[in-house]
Computed example of a mutant assay.
Amino acid sequence: MSLFHAVAFVDHQSAQVVQFDAEHTVEQKIHAHAHYTRQHGSAVRSEHEFFAEVCDALEGIAEVLMTGGHTGLADFRHYVEKHRPLTAARITGYEVVDHPSEKALLALARKHFVKYDQMGGTGTPA
């Protein structure tokens, strides 16, 4: 099921993507797979692989609000702007939050998208 809006919470170890409309929510969790080696830069490669999985989970979603801790969100934003410009174009905002519940995350997203939809003159599909 592809829904119009989504909110995603991302840090360096996991991500939670919640797609929603007026009546439905669909949640997906993504976990980082650490495969550390002695090779220089392996942590960066692992982080990029994880962020790529998050971007893949956002495919097909028209508008996304990204949330997370300051560092994780900044690192994700840097990755997506550099490596995934099509995904970056669908991100409507970045909010720094501290591990909200799914209910709190959804409330934040609904508030964000009401303002965003009113500014853009578009309505959320029913």
Rank of each mutant, 00 (worst) to 15 (best):
H31F: 02
P100I: 05
T92S: 13
A15P: 02
Y94L: 06
P125I: 01
T67L: 04
E47D: 12
V80D: 04
C55S: 07
H83W: 15
A6T: 08
P85K: 04
S46P: 00
L106E: 00
H24W: 12
D75T: 12
Q16M: 00
H112P: 05
D21I: 00
H35E: 12
A15M: 02
V18A: 03
H83P: 13
A74F: 14
H99D: 10
A43W: 06
A34S: 09
D21P: 01
E47Q: 14
Y94V: 03
A34R: 08
Y36Q: 14
A8F: 04
R90P: 08
G68H: 03
V7D: 00
F51A: 03
I30R: 00
D21W: 00
T124P: 10
S46N: 09
V96E: 12
A6E: 07
A74N: 15
A109W: 00
Q13C: 00
Q16F: 00
A89S: 03
E47P: 12
H99F: 09
Q118E: 15
M119K: 13
K111Y: 11
R90G: 07
D21V: 01
H35W: 06
T124I: 13
P100L: 04
S42W: 02
E95Q: 10
E81V: 09
V54A: 06
V44D: 14
V64S: 02
H12G: 06
H5K: 08
A15W: 01
E102H: 14
G123D: 14
D117K: 11
T71L: 12
T67E: 05
L86R: 13
Q28I: 08
A52L: 12
K29D: 04
E81S: 12
R84A: 15
S101P: 11
R38F: 06
R45N: 08
H24R: 15
A74G: 13
T67A: 06
L106N: 00
F4E: 07
G69R: 10
A52M: 13
V64L: 05
S101R: 10
